[in-house]
């Protein structure tokens, strides 16, 4: 009893300051998470009370062709878009890190797209640029090439969104630049004396030393790409079309939950999304022991 009292005497100020956070995490995270896990085992339309159906939603999911398609679309978006985005970020960061004048200016220029990129305004712009009589086709026309409507062609629509993601490489580039600055210059000096060329220097000095930054960017990029919503919603007008080719996982979840009011089904989708993100993140963490090098 005395020890509890003592602990409380020492702790109460800490908990006083934590009160908003604790209330918040209970009300907006813990309890909703529990509720959505429960809903995922029920049929629930928000107007009548939830009806327990066990694994029914999960079984239905794996038989739902539209769901499977949304998984494919999202995985393509994530695993094609994120690596390409990082490739661009690292390439430009490496060039900027060569001690050229105007670094801050260039960095700012390249950062702007990732500041704007998530907005509705840019998604609208994208819809015009890649549309039938959009900017891209006007440029192609100038060279005498007849372009297609990239947005309404099922085989190209998703790639316009992947290009939009790559276009926003600025934030990861800024992080890469900060990482590159920490690579000791004398390593390059000695490598030069040993006759190592640019590519050799890059693969045996730069790349190994910035693997922690690559790791960070990869994890963050993948987590956020899995949750992308705005571009697909705006560019496809909320449908995920044409022919569901841009039906992102989160967009399908939104349709199921908030236009069809299948709350149970949407909750099951949310939990699978959580599991998928955790699984991929865990995989990268485990593999990182093999390819991420921390300087002591």
């Amino acid at each position: 009893m005395e020890t509890i009292k003592n602990a409380w005497r020492k702790s109460w100020v800490g908990y006083l300051f934590l009160t908003p956070w604790i209330l918040g995490i209970l009300a907006f995270t813990m309890i909703p998470m529990g509720a959505s896990l429960y809903f995922s085992f029920t049929r629930y339309d928000m107007f009548t009370s939830p009806e327990w159906i066990g694994l029914g939603n999960y079984i239905a999911l794996f038989q739902d062709e539209k769901w499977k398609n949304s998984v494919t679309v999202t995985l393509t978006y994530v695993f094609l878009g994120v690596p390409l985005q990082l490739l661009f970020a690292l390439t430009i960061a490496t060039l900027l890190n060569k001690g050229i004048a105007g670094l801050r200016f260039y960095r700012a220029i390249y950062y702007v797209p990732s500041l704007f990129g998530g907005s509705v305004a840019i998604a609208i712009l994208w819809r015009q640029i890649f549309g039938g009589s959009g900017l891209i086709n006007n440029v192609l026309d100038y060279f005498g090439i007849q372009g297609i409507n990239w947005i309404s062609t099922p085989s190209t629509a998703l790639y316009t969104l992947i290009i939009l993601m790559i276009w926003q490489f600025g934030a990861s580039m800024v992080i890469f630049l900060a990482g590159l600055k920490q690579v000791p210059m004398d390593l390059y000096e000695s490598a030069k004396i040993d006759g190592a060329g640019f590519m050799k220097q890059f693969t045996s000095i730069t790349l190994p030393l910035i693997t922690p930054v690559v790791f960070f960017n990869l994890v963050m990029g993948i987590i956020s790409a899995f949750q992308a919503f705005t571009p697909a919603y705006i560019v496809s007008g909320g449908t995920g079309g044409p022919l569901d080719s841009t039906l992102f996982y989160t967009l399908y979840l939104y349709q199921k939950g908030f236009t069809h009011f299948q709350m149970g089904y949407a909750s099951a989708m949310a939990w699978i999304l959580l599991l998928a993100i955790s699984f991929v993140t865990a995989l990268i963490f485990v593999s990182s022991k093999k390819w991420v090098f921390y300087q002591e």
Partner: peptide
Amino acid sequence: IMLITLMLPFHVTIIPQYI
């Protein structure tokens, strides 16, 4: 716990929150 919530996709909480 705070750090874990950083990584959590908000979709697992959004439906009950909406309700």
